[in-house]
Design a protein around this nucleic acid. Structure first.
Lengths: 151, 151
DNA sequence: GAATAATATTTGTCAAGGCAAACATGTGTT
DNA sequence: AACACATGTTTGCCTTGACAAATATTATTC
């Protein structure tokens, strides 16, 4: 073959770059968790993180928050409930909905995952100083808003 | 429920932001293509783009370029070959490998897709001036390198 | 130069996610 | 109140992609 590894992105679009960064973050975070003895996929990490940081919410709110299909969310909740990490309770104001909340075991799991999350994010931003980190966040938010405004 | 849409990311990590941007790019590009009468998924777009810009290459080179599993690549090539967009030819130097190349129909398809691609990328960067676009690219490359160096 | 290891492609199997249908409940209109 | 319509959850179906095994060929080692 011509070359050996992945030295690409000399003139890749930001679309490609964003995809590569996203993929690398997912892989590294899953590797960190596995190394810590945590058997969870990236999606499940996102769900637990959301619940830990934002508190109980309905399944559909959770699905929108992590950009997951409603059906897929049902199955993820099945798994996480099966592992004892969260509970499905009836929603007080809406009898259609559920109140998804972390169990103590789920809280403890989040405590274990926190260092993995921070480790990956710190590594990702290692080559950026605080000003640059803030700029990157700002640019990403502006790109996201621009895309969502696209019609 | 509490709020209505997707006004999130006030304090989301760059990991979450990158994921949101990536998802939005995929959705918008697929919508653009569909509106142009092109029945292709994002992955197939990436494969054709790669072949159009970099010329013929082996299936495994292609798989590495678009970060796709080898088995998945085989099936994508089946589909794209079935649509007459590319050909599998024997590789001159390596009898294990294939030489994947676009057909004239594949070239024509790329010509049709180009405006979709540019439209989405322009929209994404609409709120960034040229200097900021260059900075964003630079930051993303540095983040990607930092993640890959992580051990 | 034979044996061993590495790589390219294909196929089978499985998990995950999107879409649509079904059903329950909530919201709004008249 | 009755109606239509929207939303929340679940389930079935299908596609996609990762992983592993099988086979063919190339590269490396002794």
């Amino acid at each position: 073959m011509t070359s050996s590894h992945t030295p690409s992105y000399p003139q890749d679009s930001i679309g490609v770059l964003v995809g590569l960064v996203r993929g690398e973050i997912v892989r590294k975070l899953e590797a960190e968790m596995q190394a810590a003895g945590i058997e969870l996929r990236f999606t499940q990490f996102l769900i637990l993180k959301r619940l830990a940081l934002m508190g109980p919410m309905s399944a559909s709110e959770l699905a929108r928050a992590v950009e997951l299909d409603g059906g897929a969310m049902t199955r993820q909740l099945d798994q996480l409930e099966g592992k004892g990490l969260l509970r499905r309770l009836p929603h007080e104001q809406d009898r259609r909905a559920l109140r998804i909340e972390l169990t103590p075991a789920g809280d403890a799991m989040w405590q274990q995952m926190t260092p993995c999350n921070e480790h990956v994010l710190d590594a990702a931003q290692k080559a950026l100083n605080p000003t640059e980190r803030e700029q990157l966040r700002d640019y990403l938010v502006r790109v996201l808003d621009a895309l969502r405004d696209m019609n």
